[in-house]
Design a protein around this nucleic acid. Sequence first.
DNA 1: GGATATTTCTATATCGTTATAGTTTCACCG
DNA 2: CGGTGAAACTATAACGATATAGAAATATCC
Lengths: 354, 354
Amino acid sequence: MTAPPGTAASPPDSEAERPTLKTIAAETGYAVATVSRALKDASDIGEETKKRVRAAALRLGYRPNRAGVRLRTGKTNVIALVLSTETDVMNHTSRLIYSIASALRGTAYHLNVTPFFPDQDPMDPVRYIVETGSADAVILNQTKPDDPRVRYMAERGFPFATHGRTEMGIVHPYFDFDNEAFARIGVQALASRGRRRLLLVPPPRAHAYGRHMTTGFVQAAAEAGVRFEVMTDVTSDSASADVEAAVGARMAQDAVPDGFLVGSTTAAMAAISGAEQAGHVIGRDFDVVAKEAIRFLHRFRPQILVIQEDVARAGTFLSNAVLAAIERRAMPAQQGLDIPTGVENSDKPGGEAR
Amino acid sequence: MTAPPGTAASPPDSEAERPTLKTIAAETGYAVATVSRALKDASDIGEETKKRVRAAALRLGYRPNRAGVRLRTGKTNVIALVLSTETDVMNHTSRLIYSIASALRGTAYHLNVTPFFPDQDPMDPVRYIVETGSADAVILNQTKPDDPRVRYMAERGFPFATHGRTEMGIVHPYFDFDNEAFARIGVQALASRGRRRLLLVPPPRAHAYGRHMTTGFVQAAAEAGVRFEVMTDVTSDSASADVEAAVGARMAQDAVPDGFLVGSTTAAMAAISGAEQAGHVIGRDFDVVAKEAIRFLHRFRPQILVIQEDVARAGTFLSNAVLAAIERRAMPAQQGLDIPTGVENSDKPGGEAR
DNA sequence: GGATATTTCTATATCGTTATAGTTTCACCG
DNA sequence: CGGTGAAACTATAACGATATAGAAATATCC
């Protein structure tokens, strides 16, 4: 009898070594290649062998070494989420992260988060990931109308999806909140409440969604036959104090607006503060339509008119989109749109922020 | 003359292959091992060689293949952030992520985010990371007084740091907001405003910080000689509607509290709503002290008394702590505490939420 | 019965890196 | 001039996985 080690009991090591294919091979008596093929259920491996190998793998708690797989196959099993830190809408980011991670549960994929900062070239993280092959797919947020990151990934055929659209005519998977619909519904809600002089605090035009919202606002207001104006000195991403001051100043002038459409949650609060300081009362002198990802604005002022954005749906969609792209699968829909259906305010019950 | 390829011009490949040590070796004429050693500035490599190798590496845009390094050395260059999704305090999470990522900029480390969900064993992600060696260090948040995750990592000597303390007597790097100081300062602020019947909406006692806050509250109130009570049916993590209802009910009974200390931002808003619905006026009938990570509560009610939590500092500290732990370096301080210095309200100017 | 498939398994090379044990070259020494 | 040692470099063997060509063993066919 020869003495191949590890045939009987478990290894005598004090440090429990992590099992590899080699360990299983030694345990079962098969070759490493056979074990590898058996575990991936290859057609040229016998049923009995597969059963034995799987049993050993389970017993030993085998988990493939990612570095080994990655080196050999190039597959990283990583999805990179590249986040713009420019705008951090209330709880938007963490919701997005949670919903992506949640959709990735049960898959072999892990989530890598790479924020980039205002002093940085937005291309840096994207280039790094593609050049070093450190992820299998990328999810981007805060797209610009002409976004070099999208062009870069599309040109290289690197799997990716974006939260937000572009205006480049490049077909790729994205999920977007329908800011045009948001503006339209908001304008209609204000108009139906008798508001006739509308004011938009728009997102920056540098972002694609800023243009959509502005376009929707202008069109809907024109259709409704009401007067309208768009703030130019501040955006919904400006510092709260600036929004407050700008709106306050505007509300002290002539032809006072009586309906606000505001592009972000924080800016909505600031705008209301500004108007109030100019002596106007919400619900009586003016109404406000705002977008939020988590219900809490109604606590700020119950009179506020709110349109909900479903960030979790975005995360789920984007995860599925990149998983499909990695496997070169077709998707039922390459693009997803979160189309709001109407405004809410505090008289309507609903899910609550915690 | 022999014909070793790639001596003169760049490779004729249409697909620009990613350069490896081999590429540099071919370019420079040195052996792969020499190139490797030259790039890590080993002592047994000549200056002239190093210079040439570095130049070639730069010219070719060489970046080490992480999978190769990881396979050979076991080093992943990944920091894992394991997030509890139980409580999602306003913008807390994204701030933490940004600040960690920011501190990791310029290092060779990447950030992996692994949330775990209420239906999951909190040990799962931690076990997975340690067993598969998928990260060099772990950062945990939302510690429990007796936290098995901390025990697990400490026993194995796996580099880690936590946001929040435990009560297990295990010495390890952590950063914590001083919730005891928060409670003390809050109670003193209320007492100095003449409030004599204080109410605490505490964080869940399952979390370490919940105990700290409660302890601090009870002690400070006793010292100040004021009456106090701790809500038992709801916590600052309860659904907003529940907090609102519970506080509202309490405010309709006898011996009405005139000062609230609230453990979270959202619960503070809910508590105020509840009290207001019971007919009480903030600033006149009662005062509220709340904690926030991002300035915006003053917009909700200017009268609110706010104590700021510096989440960015936590992220920076935790990053440095795990980097030191990975390199087995000593840290100037193993533990960090964010000790609030006082309350603010809207009469004091300050940084703004955007 | 010999040739040809078919099934099932194995040996080998490889991905990119690094640790280790050489090897070569040259200077210096007694 | 042989021996010693340092300096500078190289060859080789891993790390763990998998693709691929090939090898036994068995089955199938004319």
